[in-house]
């Protein structure tokens, strides 16, 4: 039997390995974003660290700089797209508007529905829940063609509102199920105590139960946000001019080559808002908010 010291060394080695496997692609991606084009496209060897870091890729994609001016007349880029083709600022703004709005909408609507499904007994509630869940059985791509036609007829195609609605629809089922399970964790006696204290049903909901599942709401919002932030196929089909970040990045793959520098720069930059959002809500991402309400 191995000693406890060697066991813990082994445990560390395994965890370092696992973390390395997961972090490597992101790290490589981020590293690529600060490599000069000569290092990205070195035909002879893989350049890992021996390059002169440059922020040109960020200047073009995130700050909207002109790509020709940055590399001192050298033909550094292969693409021949027009001016501003690599400017990701509009995409970041669109993605933010869409992700924040659809996250808010999906969470808000799902909260109301989840509370009702968790607390009120009505005919068909279980069937309704199953039906809601079934809405996630289909991959979004399966409904894309009818959706494009419907959105076109409604004038929602290529609008922020259109994608916000689409993302909200996709997010509601999962948000509803998640939130319902959080509501279910709050004992019904809490609602009843509040009602006996004189609260209406709605006061029970927003004064008592809602604050007790803050953590669950935060977790749900993070999930919705990440989905919307990274969603590709719906955004691709439903827009022409509004480009969310994932769609925008695909345009960097051109007929003449892939702009790995710009792809990795915008991709790395795109991680940041999600990261900030999670940092903001992570204070609430703790279990045990109902602690003390009941005898555990």
């Amino acid at each position: 039997m191995p000693s406890s010291a060697s066991k813990s060394v082994l445990r560390y080695l395994v965890s370092i390995f696992v973390v390395a496997v997961f972090v490597f692609p992101i790290a490589w991606f981020a590293l690529t974003s600060i490599k000069p084009i000569s290092a990205v496209f070195n035909k002879d060897r893989v350049v890992v660290f021996d390059f002169k870091p440059t922020f040109d890729n960020y200047r073009v994609t995130v700050l909207g700089g002109e790509k020709e001016n940055l590399v001192g007349g050298q033909s550094a880029s292969m693409g021949t797209s027009g001016k501003g083709a690599y400017d990701g600022r509009g995409s970041i703004m669109s993605s933010l508007i869409i992700a924040v709005s659809s996250t808010f909408l999906a969470t808000f609507l799902a909260l109301l529905a989840a509370y009702a499904l968790s607390r009120m007994k009505f005919w068909g509630s279980q069937g309704y829940l199953n039906w809601v869940l079934s809405q996630r059985f289909l991959p979004p791509v399966a409904i894309i063609i009818p959706l494009v036609f419907i959105f076109h007829d409604l004038g929602l195609r290529d609008t922020h509102l259109g994608i916000i609605i689409a993302h909200t629809l996709i997010n509601i089922p999962i948000a509803l199920l998640l939130l319902k399970s959080f509501f279910d964790d709050v004992p019904i006696e809490i609602d009843q105590a509040a009602m006996i204290d004189g609260a209406t049903r709605f006061q029970c909901f927003y004064l008592v139960v809602l604050p007790m599942i803050r953590g669950g709401i935060a977790a749900t919002a993070v999930l919705c946000f990440i989905f919307s932030w990274t969603e590709f196929i719906l955004s691709l089909f439903l827009t022409n001019t509004i480009r969310t970040i994932p769609v925008k990045i695909t345009t960097f793959v051109t007929s003449t080559g892939s702009e790995w520098g710009y792809i990795s720069a915008l991709g790395t930059a795109a991680i940041i808002p999600g990261f900030i959002f999670i940092l903001l809500v992570q204070n609430h991402l703790v279990r045990g908010l109902t602690m003390g309400a009941i005898k555990d």
């Binding site: 809490i190 004189g198 309400a293």
Partner: peptide, 17 residues
């Protein structure tokens, strides 16, 4: 809410927040 009764529950049912 309008019966003016007060109730103490087995599991206390306090407002945890």
């Amino acid at each position: 809410k309008d019966r003016n009764v007060a109730m103490v529950f087995q599991n206390y049912a306090l407002y945890a927040h």
